[in-house]
């Protein structure tokens, strides 16, 4: 029974990882057709970086992810603090809206935001992408920070208040240091979500600001492109590094 369940686990992991491994191996394949092995080569990486539009899309994506993660971490942290500390009317509604963002199908969020932007006459591009990405990252940051706050000694902020600290000072000197690991983890999660998003970006991006996932999307819709293997491998290594970093931060803060 025991070896049976072990080999079942191993089999499923194998199936999950085979496509990823194949992609990485094929990114070093010299053959143009993409199916047969034609020897080791880094030519697809070279052609990737010599493609000006591709490099531009990479920078655009990085900048978007960087700013979206930062803004959503700031707003998300404040939201979590407000939900944790303050009593106010409509708290349930606020919670409900965050829940809706997280649970509703991405495509529904995407069209609702597109509708809003067009109604406002906002030109689709960096700003619309930023607003959309911050919105879908927000609940994840809130949850990460809330989880951190829930295990926190309530007497500390009270003591700070008794000693005469204002709400702002207390938040800055007591609460922010406590939630710092959660902020970093939430930031990394937001960064990754933003870098990977296809569904929402398809709707709210315009020709003025091309981002990486959409460029990949238009490449893979028609046939196989060896450059995509190389690009996919780079993205894979990148997000793996981000994930390990966030796990490391979280586990270190627990000790």
């Amino acid at each position: 029974m025991r070896w049976l369940s072990r080999s079942y686990l191993a089999l499923v992991y194998l199936l999950l990882y085979v496509p990823i491994v194949v992609l990485v191996i094929f990114s070093f394949n010299d053959s143009r057709t993409g199916y047969n092995w034609g020897g080791l080569s880094v030519r697809w990486y070279e052609s990737l970086f010599s493609n000006h539009a591709m490099v531009q899309a990479m920078w655009n994506s990085l900048w978007l992810a960087l700013t979206a993660a930062t803004v959503s971490t700031c707003i998300g942290a404040l939201t979590a603090l407000a939900l944790h500390r303050y009593r106010f009317r409509g708290k349930k509604v606020l919670n409900g809206m965050l829940f809706v963002v997280m649970m509703s199908p991405e495509i529904v969020l995407a069209i609702s935001l597109l509708g809003l932007f067009l109604l406002l006459g906002l030109k689709l591009g960096y700003v619309s992408l930023l607003l959309a990405h911050v919105t879908f990252c927000l609940p994840f940051v809130v949850i990460t920070v809330m989880a951190r706050l829930s295990g926190f000694d309530e007497r500390l902020p009270e003591a700070a208040r008794d000693l005469g600290a204002s709400d702002f000072t207390m938040t800055r000197t007591v609460l922010i240091p406590v939630i710092m690991p959660a902020l970093l983890a939430g930031w990394l999660l937001g960064f990754t979500l933003s870098m990977d998003d296809v569904v929402v970006s398809t709707f709210v991006s315009g020709p003025s600001y091309e981002i990486l996932p959409l460029r990949i999307y238009s490449m893979v819709r028609v046939g196989l492109k060896p450059e995509v293997n190389a690009l996919g491998t780079l993205l894979l290594v990148f997000s793996l590094a981000m994930l390990m970093l966030s796990q490391w931060i979280l586990s270190r803060s627990k000790q």
Binding site: Y13, L16, P19, Y35, I216, V220, L224, L235, S239
Partner: peptide
């Protein structure tokens, strides 16, 4: 094991879908 399970969640889903194409194509693996 849980970590190995959430790695795919953090990687680009478009790229992973494309990787399946490499395997399933007519002259694929």
């Amino acid at each position: 094991l849980i970590f190995l399970l959430i790695v795919p969640f953090w990687t680009n889903s478009l790229v992973r879908t494309y990787a399946l194409k490499l395997i399933l194509a007519t002259n694929g693996l």
